[in-house]
Nucleic acid binder design. Structure first.
Length: 107
DNA sequence: TTAATGACCTATC
DNA sequence: CGATAGGCCATTA
């Protein structure tokens, strides 16, 4: 069952520790920059949260969504801190310091 | 089946 | 440069 979701899951699961990726970035890496919404949907269902760290996925502003599906917003922040993410006083992560460089997929 | 919404982003004025 | 509007894909009702 390798649908669009699987692609997104693969990307998110490939996110290295201590870094975060944005929906648009994941969508772009997936091969479709306009899957931004679908990416959110994929994480929303999150059938493999154990292997799909949604907390490492943030929006364009470096903030997580309001509707979390694996615990709570506080947990999300804690998990990122555990990974070594630097949270700004605004409640967002320093994308310019932790935004995922990109997939190790050398073309 | 059609229509509307959605953890969004991009382009244009 | 800043803000506004629209659009794309998939899922759900």
């Amino acid at each position: 069952m390798k649908n669009t979701f699987t692609i997104i899951y693969e990307i998110v699961k490939q996110i290295p520790k201590g870094k975060v990726a944005t929906y648009g970035q994941i969508a772009a890496l997936a091969g479709n920059p306009r899957w931004s919404q679908v990416v959110g949907f994929a994480l929303h269902v999150n059938p493999d949260e154990q292997n799909i760290p949604c907390y490492r996925v943030v929006n364009r502003f470096g903030q997580t969504a309001s509707a979390f599906a694996f615990g709570g917003e506080d947990v999300q922040k804690l998990l990122l801190e555990e990974d070594g993410i630097v949270f700004l006083p605004d409640g967002s992560v320093d994308l310019k310091k932790h935004q995922w460089d990109g997939e190790p997929f050398s073309e």
